[in-house]
Design a protein around this nucleic acid. Sequence first.
DNA 1: ACGGTGATGTTACCGAGTCACATCATCGAG
DNA 2: CTCGATGATGTGACTCGGTAACATCACCGT
Lengths: 201, 201
Amino acid sequence: MARWEPDARGRLLRTAVDLFFEQGYDATTTAQIAERAGLTKTTLFRLFPDKREILFQGQGTLIDLAVEAVARAVPGSPAIDVVAAAISAMTDAHVADHSSSQRLAGLIAASPELRERAAFKRSSIAGALQTALLERLGSARRAGLLADVGVRAYYDGFDRWIAADGDRSLTAVVLDELAECEADLRELVLGTRTHPVPQRA
Amino acid sequence: MARWEPDARGRLLRTAVDLFFEQGYDATTTAQIAERAGLTKTTLFRLFPDKREILFQGQGTLIDLAVEAVARAVPGSPAIDVVAAAISAMTDAHVADHSSSQRLAGLIAASPELRERAAFKRSSIAGALQTALLERLGSARRAGLLADVGVRAYYDGFDRWIAADGDRSLTAVVLDELAECEADLRELVLGTRTHPVPQRA
DNA sequence: ACGGTGATGTTACCGAGTCACATCATCGAG
DNA sequence: CTCGATGATGTGACTCGGTAACATCACCGT
């Protein structure tokens, strides 16, 4: 399949990340990215629907993975386990190494435009997860609440993983975060007073 | 303060809604909106940071209202009550009538670009609410989880209000939704077992 | 009446994104 | 080995969102 220089998408992604780091997202032109990648603006927009999406490729796959994991989950298992299966399916598919992920997260955090796209992705994942959970729970409200918890655990866990040294696996950190969420939720709902919570040992 | 024709922002908003309904969001030009409102493109972009924001003006105020409500809440009151105060502060400030809100919701749902902005607004509200709650709860995780629940109750309640006849007040519907969320959350966290819903093999 | 001030208009410009059309590299059939 | 089909890429022109510098106009107080 590969003709000319292979992996045009990957080249564009790497080039874009480099340029965004050098000059900032806004100051970098799509024509600039394409040129340094040995392509043209037209080809860039053939491969990506827009400039932001260069950094978010593959997030559509995330949704599919989560939804499939929910569909594959054992019927009758606790809802929280189904959520855990869904989000660990996403983390397992995470290919970028720790430092690349750090770079990417820094870029996104620095640009409102990219943060907006990130929020959209997050809400898309939450929506898809809710729909998938709905078939099991029968209640849209419960499915939505659970999806929120799962997505929060995924993103907050991801942030913890980013901030850490990268020794622990992403999946472990995220599943740990989910367990913490469940515990906190239980205490919140039971009306217990706030007390020192055992953070990670 | 008002010179020339007054309320340029309001005129632009109404004109934009009309045009978006007639032609769709994408097919409507900012110059078109400005012209029909008796202004020019430049003035439009002086009053709104971008085209999408025409439909979302005032959402920044929503955040302030929620945050202030949290700050004003009685110390020591249950966390869920603080959340209720925050979201009812937002609904109380809702000025648009039922049918206008329906139109606006339909427009936003029809355009991916507008849905993305809506997701960003929602995440911004959730973030601000989490920060406000953090001072009371001491735990960022609990604050985030509670903020998610509150924001979900707000949006899902809003949708229910939109879909209904508009007899009940928005605040009543949203607070009812929040109560339902709390109840569902309690059941989810206690005997969490998936309902006997017919699974597909 | 007049001058200051703020809101608006004019003009020109840049960059994202689209489109129609041309080109070129590869592969398979003969 | 040649040649045509195919699909990826390039070219050039275009629209539209958004910005900026400068000019203009309406109101207000003096």
